[in-house]
């Protein structure tokens, strides 16, 4: 018999890589959106598809109006990206293991070449941060020249999403390993964090209490979105501080 006090929530697990986003200093300039698209070969879908809700961004800036006219108030900009959940709803529903949890890096992976395009993961993602390749979008010359060779170029029928710039993680780990040391905090960062002119995005190891990102995350008034669903997200938001 289990007594109630013996039941523990497993919410204490920490991830490995995490992010802190300060909404108060985010200006909504979209530099992170552009940098992400460049770094990760995210395609441009064109006017028509974009207007129909098929634009592909791994990070987007959300903003809402609160209240009725003329008493309207603008909410702070909210960059929304894959929260790299510790217990992700997208993972169990994929029939092909195309979206799996990386035990090594504590990330939610999207294996493009295994994806068959059932789109169940996107339905089940509470944050709605997954993008689907509805077509083979054209990249006129010379756009293909700016492809990042470290990232797969996706084709039609494949789901994709933010990877926390896993190619940069691997590069940094590889470099550190070749020099026989650990990856230092702040040695590298994701494309969005690197591009942010206001330094509103900070990326790093959340399992290392000394890192900048965990010190910021434990400041107290941070919020994890939709935490009540038990998804254990690894992105902490600050606003109104």
């Amino acid at each position: 018999m289990i007594r109630p006090e013996e039941i523990k929530m497993s919410a204490e697990e920490t991830g490995k890589w995490g992010m802190v986003i300060n909404q108060d200093i985010c200006t909504g300039c979209q530099a992170c959106v552009a940098a992400c698209a460049m770094e990760n070969n995210v395609t441009f879908v064109g006017e028509e598809d974009s207007g129909y809700g098929r634009s592909m961004h791994w990070i987007r800036i959300e903003r809402f109006w609160e209240g009725e006219y003329p008493e309207v108030k603008m909410t702070p900009n909210q960059p929304m990206l894959c929260q790299q959940c510790g217990s992700a709803p997208c993972e169990p529903v994929c029939p092909a293991f195309a979206t799996v949890h990386s035990t090594a890096e504590s990330l939610n992976l999207q294996v493009y070449n295994r994806c068959v395009g059932t789109r169940y993961c996107a339905n089940n993602c509470p944050y709605q941060v997954r993008s689907f390749n509805w077509r083979d979008y054209e990249r006129p010359e010379p756009l293909p020249n700016q492809f990042n060779p470290d990232v797969t170029v996706r084709r039609r029928g494949v789901m994709e999403k933010c990877t926390f710039c896993i190619q940069r993680i691997h590069k940094a780990q590889d470099k550190a390993k070749s020099e026989g040391r650990e990856v230092a905090d702040g040695e590298f960062t994701t494309a969005c964090a690197q591009a942010c002119p206001a330094n509103a995005i900070v990326f790093g190891r959340v399992d290392n209490p000394q890192s900048l990102v965990s010190q910021l995350a434990h400041k107290g008034h941070g919020v994890k979105h939709l935490e009540e669903l038990g998804t254990l997200p690894n992105v902490t938001y600050f606003k109104g501080g």
Partner: peptide, 15 residues
């Protein structure tokens, strides 16, 4: 041949 784009599915109505 062209992808699911010719259908009407989009975000958030993936199905």
């Amino acid at each position: 041949a062209e992808g699911l784009g010719i259908a009407g599915v989009n975000r958030p109505s993936y199905w």
